[in-house]
Simulated scan of single mutants.
Amino acid sequence: MASSPSLTIITRVPLPAFLDPRLVLESLHTFESLIVANPLLKTYERRAVQVDTLVDDPFFHEDGQKLSAFVVTDRVPIIPGVGSWATKDVVIPCVFQSFEHGVRCRADAQAGVTVRSSYEVRPRGHVEGGPAEVRPGDGDYELVEIANIDCGSFVKAFVKRSFTNAHQDILQRVVDDIARRHSTANQ
């Protein structure tokens, strides 16, 4: 059994009132909507699911419906603001599992960082924790990420800071993209 995570980070983004939560759930179940929303994404490709690496991981529950695996390559700035020459490509194997309320993802990053995130479409306030901003036009649902991150103490502060900012942006991009596609389809 895995040890307790070094960090737990909850990220919440409200869904616009006009956006049916089922559309967000359908988009999450494709898995790619979460991958392409990452602003650091360079490439991604499907890979075979290695079931033997998942059997003993209690994160992947029996209520899951399907598994898909990807290799994601991010282009990460080493020195922010310096330009594209100061970047490093980081390869991250990921495994996704859909379930009734969303998607689970385990990402095994470099430096011994493992992220186990659950992305869920829930009634607003159903999940406690994390910032809860309500704006005019927001509906009764939100996209919530509950991330448990295992990492060493040496990188903990960096991981927390970069993860919190990046994943707020990723969730907002997912919601904005679905809302944009929905609005275009209804014109």
Rank of each mutant, 00 (worst) to 15 (best):
F18E: 14
L19I: 00
L19C: 04
R22A: 15
V24R: 02
V24K: 00
V24L: 12
V24D: 04
L25Q: 03
E26T: 13
E26S: 15
S27Q: 12
L28W: 00
L28V: 00
L28C: 05
T30I: 04
T30P: 00
F31G: 06
E32R: 06
S33R: 11
S33N: 06
L34P: 00
L34R: 01
L34K: 03
I35W: 01
I35G: 03
V36W: 06
A37H: 00
N38H: 09
N38M: 13
P39T: 12
P39Q: 09
L40F: 13
T43L: 01
T43Q: 10
Y44E: 03
E45K: 15
E45L: 07
R46Q: 12
A48E: 15
A48D: 15
Q50C: 12
D52S: 14
L54A: 08
L54W: 10
V55N: 08
D57Q: 07
D57P: 05
P58K: 05
P58I: 05
P58L: 06
P58S: 07
F59Y: 10
H61L: 15
H61W: 10
E62T: 14
D63L: 08
Q65F: 12
Q65I: 14
Q65G: 15
Q65M: 08
K66F: 12
L67Q: 02
A69R: 03
V71N: 11
V72F: 07
T73Q: 05
T73R: 09
R75Y: 07
V76I: 14
V76R: 03
I79E: 04
G81V: 00
G83W: 01
G83P: 02
S84V: 13
S84N: 13
S84R: 08
S84E: 15
S84D: 15
S84Y: 12
S84I: 08
W85P: 01
W85I: 13
A86Q: 01
A86N: 05
T87S: 10
K88H: 11
D89F: 09
D89C: 09
P93D: 14
C94Q: 13
C94V: 06
C94D: 10
V95W: 06
V95Y: 05
V95Q: 03
F96Y: 14
Q97N: 10
Q97M: 12
F99I: 11
